[in-house]
Design a protein around this nucleic acid. Structure first.
Lengths: 131, 131
DNA sequence: ATGAAAGTAGTAATCATTCTCAATTTATTA
DNA sequence: TAATAAATTGAGAATGATTACTACTTTCAT
């Protein structure tokens, strides 16, 4: 990866917020710093920074993709009304569901998705390792 | 809601599987039963069935929307390789993360999103109730 | 049976995202 | 320091899932 002013700006803009912004928001903010930057460049660099492990896409929160420079946490509190997305470090799901409360949020729904390999695909990947 | 053959077919097609299909898949299957049904009709009826509480959109799993006639469960196991989506009734997140195993799946990532109202919006909705 | 409301097919429009490509910038090597 | 190869970019076209529109059909309460 060569050095690139545009990529640096995209990354800095994302690091400057905890709001889990959309690509469009990142594009607008980046233009305040580099007015000539294009949407395509923002999208491309977001992708490259993801492959490079510097940021992640926040899935399952809104229709639009959202990005996060915090590559560690994977849990979020989402306000249905104003759209605020707040990071949360999350394990005790039982009590949250029971109490319906988390950090002042009134929680009434959750979405939990586990990602991995199913039995079949796991077998196949073992075979491929041997080959 | 009037009765509608198309809506019934869309609903039956979705009920016939546990694979959490896309709208396109539902459209193809529905055409096997009613060849004249259109994509728009499938999308519209999926939406209406959702408002009517008969099915849900599965969020945060893939790029495309997926639908599920099981309106109760909210947790899924997703295979990164073949795309299989398996229902799971899910609370003990800690042990899953620790063991990395669930129903034969090799789990290496999860995504947990809590939905609700933030403090501010909760206050506002209280105010509105009084008014 | 009849008229209003609900539903539909087909197609155009939308809109976030990706792709294309000629031009520019960066890195490498002579 | 050239010169060449590789990476990056802007602008705009293309994509593709979903939604909107519209003229026509069906449903249903009276």
């Amino acid at each position: 990866m060569n050095k690139s002013k545009r990529r640096d700006v995209v990354y800095e803009v994302l690091c400057s917020t905890k709001s889990h912004p959309t690509a469009e928001w990142i594009y607008e903010k980046s233009r305040e710093i580099l007015p000539s930057i294009s949407r395509g460049t923002v999208y491309r660099n977001l992708k490259e920074l993801i492959s490079n492990g510097q940021l992640t896409k926040v899935e399952g929160v809104f229709e639009m993709d959202r990005y996060d420079a915090d590559v560690e946490t994977h849990s979020h509190l989402v306000c249905r009304e104003c759209g605020a997305v707040v990071d949360f470090s999350p394990y005790d799901i039982k009590s949250v569901i029971h109490i319906g409360q988390l950090d002042g949020f009134c929680v009434d729904e959750f979405s939990l998705v586990y990602h991995g390999l199913c039995v079949e695909c796991n077998k196949l990947s073992d075979v491929n390792k041997l080959a």
